[in-house]
């Protein structure tokens, strides 16, 4: 169980996530509605967030939405990210 903190000014909210769930699915299961839900498959780009802090593993995601430069800056699609520690993320305006 990890804690995901979502920074989106002015509020700061968090939810708990079970091991094995992606950050997006964890958010959905907590009914947090913090992260917008799209395809859940790394394809549509709707759940783009930036990782501020924390360790994670990730599956491949569409380069149409996360190019190499963005990936280097910590941008990810929340549906493809699996926490390995508590994490802090910030929402990305579409």
């Amino acid at each position: 169980m990890f804690t995901i903190t979502v920074e989106s000014s002015p509020t700061r909210q968090s939810f708990q996530i079970s091991t094995g769930d992606s950050v997006l699915v964890g958010s959905e299961k907590c009914l947090s509605n913090l992260i917008p839900v799209g395809c859940r498959g790394g394809g549509c780009g709707v759940c783009k967030v930036r990782v501020v802090e924390g360790d994670y593993s990730s599956k491949c995601m569409s380069k149409a939405h996360i190019c190499d430069a963005q990936a280097a800056d910590g941008y990810v699609l929340a549906c493809r990210v699996y926490p390995l520690s508590d994490m802090c993320i910030e929402l990305v305006k579409r």
Binding site: G38, C39, R40, G41, G43, C79
Partner: peptide, 8 residues
């Protein structure tokens, strides 16, 4: 529904 790459 969506395929594992997000295609509907």
């Amino acid at each position: 529904f969506f395929d594992p790459s997000g295609n509907r």
